[in-house]
């Protein structure tokens, strides 16, 4: 009984020692690994730096770096903005307005051009009003309630009905300028000034290769939607697009002939403008964006000279 019990136990003795040694070894390897390879969160940053150091071709380095920067910059920037908007008081806002340096890039948001256009048109009474923007901020809804009850008593329709946030300030500015009958050039200057101060944020497809706000596309969208609202035709897809930067390649295979179109980004172009040019509708930008995700990390990050594939739709 005792023998039978101790017999299988004896060979285990060295086994435990081996395991302990192995355990230390694995721990040491993991520790070294941690020191050599940083945690996952830091990888893209280090990879971009490494890539920059390794790339011999300056052209490739620049574009790679740009894409890397954009990927890196996106997440922390968005978080920082959200926190900023939440924590900022009016007094701070005022101080910022007075002495705020111009932003490097226009502030963008998740809104799309159609919503902005619809908002402008309903504010101008050219379209059925859309539902008020939802907000989690109790102060926002409380302020909105007060605004509507003040309007109910004074009967003043020009008084604000919805509090202005960076997300809807673009709409408010455009509506005010259109009501005043301002020129396209004035609206362009107005929106770009506000955007450079960070007072408004714009849909991504309205950001040009130089980081300005493409007011031409915005106004074109408003005019097109207003025509549709008035019973006009929806814009047609242009048959043939020619012009500087447009390239058409016909590829013949045994079974079919395929036409590939390319467009080289020129100064002043936004993704919305390119979609408008090729598809007659800035809202179709996603076709171009999806076909170029390899070189375009976000619709607002076009660069002059970038060669985009223009798919057929």
């Amino acid at each position: 009984m005792t023998l039978a019990y101790s017999a299988p136990n004896t060979p285990r003795q060295p086994n435990i020692l081996v395991r302990v040694v192995l355990g230390f070894f694995v721990f040491a390897v993991l520790l070294c690994g941690y020191i050599v390879l940083p945690p996952v969160a830091e990888w893209p940053q280090r990879m971009a730096v490494a890539r920059q150091a390794l790339q011999p071709d300056p052209e490739v380095t620049r574009s790679d770096l740009f894409a890397g920067e954009a990927l890196l910059a996106d997440a922390p920037l968005v978080t920082a903005q959200a926190v900023e908007v939440e924590a900022r008081t009016t007094a701070q806002l005022l101080a910022e307005l007075a002495a705020r340096p111009a932003l490097d890039r226009v502030r963008t948001d998740e809104s799309n051009l159609q919503d902005t256009t619809a908002g402008v048109l309903s504010a101008l009474g050219l379209q059925e009003p859309q539902s008020a923007p939802a907000s989690d901020d109790p102060m926002f809804s409380m302020t909105a309630n007060v605004l509507s009850s003040i309007r109910a008593v004074t009967g003043d329709d020009s008084a604000p009905s919805v509090p202005v946030t960076p997300e809807n300030a673009l709409q408010a500015l455009v509506v005010a300028a259109l009501r005043e009958g301002q020129s396209d050039a004035y609206i362009d200057a107005l929106l770009n000034e506000a955007a450079s101060r960070g007072d408004i944020s714009v849909p991504r497809i309205l950001v040009t290769a130089e980081g300005r706000v493409d007011t031409t596309v915005l106004l074109a969208s408003i005019v097109a939607e207003a025509q549709i609202a008035a019973g006009g035709q929806a814009p047609l897809v242009p048959e043939l697009v020619e012009g500087p930067g447009v390239e058409v390649r016909v590829v013949q295979t045994a079974t079919e002939t395929a036409q590939h179109r390319f467009y080289t980004v020129a100064p002043g172009d936004s993704l919305g403008a390119i979609a408008l040019m090729f598809y007659g509708n800035s809202a179709r930008y996603d076709a171009i964006f999806n076909a170029n995700r390899m070189i375009l990390s976000s619709p607002d990050l076009l660069r002059v000279g970038q060669r985009l594939v223009i798919p057929q739709i």
Binding site: V85, R88, T89, T90, A91, L93, M139, F140, M142, T143, N145, V146, L147, S149, I150, R151, A152, V153, A159, P160, V162, P163, V164, T165
Partner: peptide, 23 residues
């Protein structure tokens, strides 16, 4: 005939106070 403008809406901390002032 009264309008409800809760006192908290007029605090400087309300980021939308300027809209109230405009109204």
């Amino acid at each position: 005939g009264a309008v409800n403008v809760p006192f908290s809406i007029l605090e400087a901390e309300n980021p939308y106070r300027n809209d109230i002032m405009r109204a």
